[in-house]
Amino acid sequence: MLMTLSKDSMSITREQDVVPCRNRVKEVAVKIGMGIVNQTKLVTAASELVRNILRYADSGEVLIEVVSKGRESGIRLTFSDKGPGIADINLAMQDGYSTGRSLGLGLPGTKRLVNEFDIKSTVGQGTVVTILKWKNG
């Protein structure tokens, strides 16, 4: 059973929001005692996803949750936007694929950095990406 211990959200509207968002995630990660490598992976993943929101949807929201399951605790981040959505998720999850001007590492790279990765998208309505990183994962 996954339990949510705390919740916090912030909105993403401009480029300058990337750094505060990373800091917020980092703070929470430090608070639950996550190791430096996992911290860095999680914050980097968050950075990639926030950037995706800004690049493709202009604005969106990040939900930061501390969760626990049995003896493990971790952080779950939910990135939602009301942007154009992704037509072919399988294609977007391939290494090297990008519609924007980037290396195309964003989504598949982010997936490798976290323990759980889930993406839901409807064309014309928006995208929701949920990632979870366990403290010792």
């Binding site: 430096i36 490598v37 911290q39 860095t40 992976k41 980097t44 990639e48 290494d95 290396l103 590492l105 598949p108 790279g109 982010t110 490798r112 950095l113």
Partner: peptide
Amino acid sequence: MQPAVAITLIELGL
């Protein structure tokens, strides 16, 4: 480059 950053970059594919 810090160790954690290096590990993350490799995992990211860069």
